[in-house]
Write a protein that binds this DNA or RNA. Sequence first.
DNA 1: GTAGGGTTAG
Length: 749
Amino acid sequence: MNTCHQTLVRTYLENQGLIRTKAHAKQLHAQVIRTIGPVTATVNSLIISIYSNLNLLKESLTLFDTLDSPKPTKAWKSIIKCYASCGQFVNSLTFFNEMRTLGKIPDRNVFPSLLKSCAYLRDIRLGESLHGSVIRLGFDCDLYTGNALMNMYAKLQNFGGHQLIDVITEPQKPISSSRSEQKKSDHSHECNRDFTVGVVDFNINTKEMNLLGNVGGEKKIGSLGIDGVRKVFEEMPTRDIVSWNTVISGSLQNGRHKEALDMLREMGNADLKPDSFTLSTVLPMFAKFVDVLKGKEIHGFAIRNGFVEDVFIGSSLIDVYANCNRVEDAYKLFCFIPQHDAVSWNSIIAACVQNGRFDKGLKLFRQMLQTDLKPVEHSFSSIMPACSHLTTLHLGKQLHGYIIRAAFYENMYIASSLVDMYSKCGNLKIARLIFDNMEKHDSVSWTAMIMGYAMHGHAHEAIFLFEEMVVSGEKPNPVVMVAVLTAFSHAGWLNEGWKYFNSMTQDYGIVPALEHYAAVADLLGRAGRLEEAYKFITSMHIKPTGSVWSSLLSACRVHKNIDLAEKVAKEIFKIDPEYTGAYTILSNMYGAAGRWKEAAKIRKNMKKKGMRKKPACSWVEVKNRLHAFVAGDKSHPLYYQINEALEDILERIQREGYVPDTSEVLHDVDEEQKQYSLCAHSERLAIAFGIISTPAGTTIRVTKNLRVCVDCHTVLSFISKVLSREIIVRDNTRFHHFTNGKCSCGDYW
DNA sequence: GTAGGGTTAG
């Protein structure tokens, strides 16, 4: 090496910390060419390592290609590292393979990159082989390599490696020998040559490769998994904060929460302070266990230690608060983060959606689109449920379009959320199409589709799919059983419902939860078996909630059994005195029976307690806009036209035989007034608006927040016949498809 | 060499 080159190398070594940008690196490169002209391979390797440390893959490779063979080992190592840092793991390993076939000896610095590649490619066999090589070369006492090994075992604990050389019985290099001795041999020629002999040939494209080709005296043991992490950790001569973070994270990924907490404590004893990695690793545990106190404790620690603007900790904390139903706190936290990334956006959007703040979620999603960040896969599965709940089909379709363009449709989360969205927006056919196009199914996708059928009253399809699921080997879980029981309840299949309710416990070992009891109680109630339902609820092994009773109360109303309704209402008031729905139903029933005084008494009582009846509201989508109507609503700009259309429609359907049923009108007023009250029902306003705003024959989709009233149900049937329109109504429990005078629910709901 | 986010019910 000439003086000039030596100076350059020295300058680089002195200043390498200063080369932090692509521009700096290229400038240095240009300067070298200008001042020195053709340079040696050593200097070029140096420049490659500068490029690769900045993850400048293209620049590194271009320069690497210009080198004459044999290229220096240093250059090979830089490229391997750069590929791994840029996420090109297969290339990283292929390059290592090529380097090995040229007889070049790997040193300790190259193993972390290789192990990282194995971790990401989920290649536990190669990882284990590399571990063997690490041990043989004596690099297992290297801090960085040890950390990388732990990381690999932590990430691959569920990918069952099947063999590992038991290093303890490996005769050539007992691990119990003194570490200093091993360290000395690290660089010894002998050791390296031993390695070279050990590795014959391997090809990274085949799973059959084994770095340890012909090592003798090996004993095979099972996959290491979390024990691998712990073992490496325990045998490390020195550990730093990364080692602790990795072992804690490994325990958490393995579900060993207590162990992780113990390690956290132990880390403190070792005089190491948790850093931002530690905190964002342990926070998800508190989110999972809904432990807002622990979350706050860490929040405090983060504030005291200057981590308050850390985007990793921030999004984990958002998650903790969201899981504890504290969206406001989550949002405040979100606002504190100066630089948002895709994850923090997703955390706050998911926080809103999971807590029922759908509008806020959509608003934030739109805000995110206005930044430079592109939505990622998580963004779609987080926001989609908002469309499902709000029945905003046009929005759901827009998102679906984006998903197709971005080729995200193979993602299980996204596909399941699309199945759910199309089902809940009334389009079962497309839901099924997406479901059928999925490569594989999990319990969530099966449940989403089965629930779709259940909500639309297609019990046959629901149960057929459930049986298909069982045959496919997917074990039924409590959620899918709710879907199955719901299907029976909406179809009124009492015997089948009982059968599956019993088999749930006997065959699948699922202990019935409130939801399952509620579905069966509902089934009995709808079938008119009111007394049985009452007995069923009182004999539950868990305390019934207001909502379980309220489904029976609704059934009492449908079957006009005031005596039982009073009894049931009493139970509800005992459990949940604030349950508005119960007061409303009871007062409606008194009204329908002409017992006006009692009806008035309840309403007065409600007023005294400051309770208000939940206003009935219906939504209809016209030309990609959602229009909302509240009962008796006169605020819509087209109110006059809507009313005119309604009168016209009523006249036409009365000619077809419709007779208004005013029994569900609350007030003690005359018949004409009652009919007028019926006309003001929110679902009618929405339908009438849909009819006057769309061309003849267009399907009208309406969503209502409460149950559709009996008279409106009849009116909608008539309209579907007289105007030849398909009308799809989603009420708070199910779908009604009206075509040609008939509803899909068979008037049973 | 280490970290955070998503889908199904109610």
